[in-house]
Amino acid sequence: MNRQEKEEYLREYALLKAQGKPFFPYAVAKDSIMAVIVMAVIITMSIVLGAELGPKADPTTTTYVPRPEWYFFFLFELLRIIKPPELVPLATIGIPTICMILMILVPFVDRSPERRPERRPIATTFGIFVIAAMAYLTYLGANAGSPNEIEREPPAQIAAAGGQELAHWEAGKQVTAQSGCLACHKIGENGNDGPGPPLTEIGARLPKEALARTLINPTAPMPSFQDLPPEKFDALVDFLATLK
């Protein structure tokens, strides 16, 4: 906006304001009604939905679903969609940071005097695009599969061996299922495709020692599983090694 446009705006605004009503009581009345509605909604949600408390946090086990509050789903989904490892930092911090900076800079980027949404096609399209993208990512995040079920049959020779060996394999499968790996990895048809690589054939790619090293000392954002009890950890590694 140049100087003349600024002055025009201020003049026009002064007129509109002079033709308006006092804040008290007119706007205050609307604001109060809205405040009552907001409180009523919060109270109703609290009564109907309650406040659940899951099992106590336990750094050494299992059955966790690393899911953030729903309004962070769109960030988590971004991670899932952008997979090449060299791009992961971009997805996790890069894009959110760029979005935050862009958001702060909006008034300095768009400095035209026009305010009507239908006459600001670029800004309006951009706004609708951002809303649609966030809504879509949130929807994807909300529908990401439940990450603790693996349908997989034991390999032939383990099934044939039966007994202890089979039990060890089943235990490993259970630990894998309960440790939330599927939130970030795909095993066969189960789990989410990303942010981690699929583990369907991980046994063919990595030897046991490398698997154990990855689990103890993973690359972020994968959490470390070094606190699992040794027998569970061994079962987990042995199970992964059979995935070929």
Binding site: G54, A57, P66, E69, V88, T92, I93, G94, P221
Partner: peptide, 29 residues
């Protein structure tokens, strides 16, 4: 606020979600 508050109940869900969240921060440039 909502990120830091999510950990406080300290149940499994909040604990692991926060670990992953903090790790995600760690990958930033």
């Amino acid at each position: 606020m909502s990120f830091t508050g999510y950990l406080l109940p300290f149940d499994q869900r909040s604990y692991w979600a926060t670990i992953v969240g903090v790790n995600i921060n760690g990958t930033g440039p």
